Amino acid sequence: MNKGKVVVGMSGGVDSTVAAYLLNKQGYEVTGVTLRMWDGEGTEKAIADAKRVADSIGISHEVLDCREAFRTCVVNDFIGQYQKGVTPNPCIVCNRMVKEKSLLDKAKEIGGKYIATGHYARIEKHPKTGRYAIRNSATAEKDQTYALYRLTQEQLGAMLLPIGEYTKDEVRKIAEAVDGFVAKKGESQDICFIPDGDYAAFIEREGKLTETPGNFVDMDGTILGKHKGLIHYTIGQRKGLGIALGKPAFVYRLDTEKNEVVLSDNAALFRTTLCADNLAYMAYDKFEDGQRFLAKIRYAHKPAWCTVRMVGEDKLEVVFDEPQRAITPGQSLVLYDGEFVAGGGFVL
């Protein structure tokens, strides 16, 4: 039975391979699509791997050129945020503005109803509100709901996440039946367009920026030494500061006006309150003052209980029950109602 046309994002990796394989087995008419977003290391090989896998599964495969959108929406934003002294998460922007948008546009073009990716998450209607929402995957170890919180209701309504019920080991085992080489591939890079992890060098090169050294200062403003440029640092950082004070020191704040890196002890990094803007709503279409949620302030953060209230048309205040370490401007606050993503925003 043909369940309809689905466009599957295929990166040439394990997870998207298995997503396409499972949907094909379930009776969908699958089109594999690889998004060319960046002409970097490994791009051509990833495309070739995806094409080989698609042939093995017996599905069609196309390459979509998304480089312009990726540069505008993701790379330029990434550089701009670092210039402002904040630490962005480009994958979250990419998921909504480039990946899922491009897949959905392609699905509409071919008369398809669905799109799919290899994310470890599930999509269900929220039991209270009836809105589409991302739900935690079956395995907490690989849960990727945090990165998907900005998806729209239209995107969620068309989206299939076939590996959300599986563990990574189970997915690798399925992949072995499709392509032995792909099944042995390692995990993908955190940021695909900076494979070496040298953010500062990338920002200098792509943003045509010159680093401006400045002062390390303590909480009272006393000069402690010289830093290499604000783009080398993020809140909570201890390693790689290049300064010896005879005691542990951590980045407390980046002061873009004075070009200073403010250092503190670890205890000063703990706070109970944050504000977020550029809000995205998922399980709920608005937040009510006094609502209780579990919140994550970074991908690997253990969810913590909090209470929220609106303090502006597009600004949310979050008060945690317990102090949280290194709340970082530019990172995403993601709110959970049980296992469902309620929404979130960017930390101010």
Rank of each mutant, 00 (worst) to 15 (best):
M37D: 10
L224Y: 09
T272R: 14
D179T: 13
R122D: 02
G343I: 08
I79E: 02
K113I: 05
Q155E: 04
I235R: 13
L156I: 14
G112H: 01
E204F: 03
N266E: 14
Q81D: 04
A69D: 14
D196V: 13
A140H: 10
I223S: 07
A19F: 12
A304P: 09
Q189E: 13
K315A: 08
S188E: 15
F216V: 15
V178I: 04
E288C: 08
P248V: 02
P248Y: 02
G290L: 09
D77Q: 04
E29V: 04
K113W: 01
L103W: 00
K3M: 14
N278K: 08
A158S: 15
G13W: 08
P303G: 07
I123T: 11
G130W: 04
P329L: 15
E170F: 06
T117N: 03
A133N: 07
K168M: 10
V171R: 15
F346N: 12
A244C: 09
G118W: 02
C66R: 11
E187L: 07
A19H: 05
R309G: 05
I327T: 08
H232V: 09
W38C: 09
A20Q: 01
E260I: 01
G157R: 05
L274Q: 06
I194H: 11
M310H: 08
R96L: 01
K3R: 15
E187Q: 07
K226F: 00
Y120C: 11
G197E: 04
V319H: 14
E288S: 10
A138D: 13
